[in-house]
Design a protein around this nucleic acid. Structure first.
Lengths: 188, 188
DNA sequence: CACGAGAGTGAGTGGTCAACCACTCATGGA
DNA sequence: TCCATGAGTGGTTGACCACTCACTCTCGTG
């Protein structure tokens, strides 16, 4: 296997970031147990063996991917909150919700949340990341919006409803029941 | 009906029901991809080979388990609605919510819902069962409660919030963020 | 009581998985 | 130019998976 162009090496840190970014797409379809490390490697354009040089185990890899998603969500909410400072809690929450809806118009990010929840049930490392992720998210939304307990709870309940809707697929035949569930949920 | 040390045969239909009932516990922890048919067989007290005489494939088995859970949930809501007929939508929904909370005080039923959602993303048979399950559930709740679109949506949003809370574990260290998410959610 | 239908299993099969290791090669500094 | 370091891979391993099949055992019925 001779190569025309000399192969270009990256630093391990760069590769790790590439893997985290591309693994989102790999894990999105079948989650933690349904996705092989070979699939992740292929998505990142490296060998399966090298995945294990960059991450100590499959569980650690998945946990890192989930953490990476939480960071993105947090960043999205923060920039939304920044452009709505001083407004009423309702307006801030609406702005945040809108930013979130735009962020996850690529479904993969949301599917990772769903699969992270499923894996959290029996994988301790994943559970820890999910718990800490939502802890920070809830506290941030509370602080940035100044909304009431009920409003904060509502905010996250709608997010969870999004997971349900996305997992069932918005494209296929939807009846009035689907419209009831999805009412008012922005969709880009 | 003499039950002695001699091996007692069941009808295939009886066995199928046993498998459906016991498989809930097996699939609850690690979901569709993370659970082996051997584990399901062990939980049902039969050989792994016989699972494949009772169900054509692992996917069909899991889909049947999910359907079985939806039936239980529906039955629970129906009996709750029956004892609250004639009341206001708020009261009916509250009664239903309470019955649901009691039903899933055994977490397994709820975890199956979560894992079903995750599997629905890429397993067509599961997606179909989940879609039909929620379709009937939404229409039933709408009809039986007479609540507004917002109330129905709220009802299911809270249910989804329960999935999140259960998947992260209620037992471990919970801060104010957890109390915010779980506020008002009955827990037996 | 004999027998057939159906319950139930032991022993596989081919394939795949996570994880590991010995190895090659690219690159920057001396 | 040479070498140390670290990027990156091919090949393997042992466990395990979904699924199959030839076979035995049970029991209701004629």
């Amino acid at each position: 296997m001779s190569k025309e162009r000399a192969r270009q090496l990256s630093t391990a840190e760069e590769r790790r970031e590439t893997v985290l970014r591309t693994a989102i797409g790999a894990f999105a379809a079948r989650g933690y147990w349904g996705t092989t490390t070979t699939e992740v490697a292929k998505a990142a354009g490296i060998s399966q063996a090298y995945v294990y040089r960059l991450f100590p185990s499959k569980e650690a890899l998945f946990a890192a991917v989930v953490e990476h998603c939480f960071v993105q969500v947090r960043a999205s909410l923060e920039s939304a909150a920044a452009e709505a400072t001083g407004s009423s809690p309702e307006v801030v929450l609406k702005t945040m919700g809108d930013a979130y809806a735009r962020l996850i118009s690529n479904n993969d990010l949301m599917l990772i949340q769903l699969h992270a929840q499923a894996a959290a049930v029996s994988e301790p490392a994943v559970r820890e990341v999910v718990r800490r992720g939502y802890a920070r998210l809830v506290e941030y939304v509370r602080g940035a919006s100044g909304g009431s307990e009920e409003q904060i709870q509502q905010f996250f309940a709608v997010g969870m409803l999004c997971h349900l809707i996305v997992s069932m697929g918005t494209d296929e035949t939807d009846g009035p029941w689907m419209r009831t569930l999805a009412a008012g949920v922005t969709h880009y």
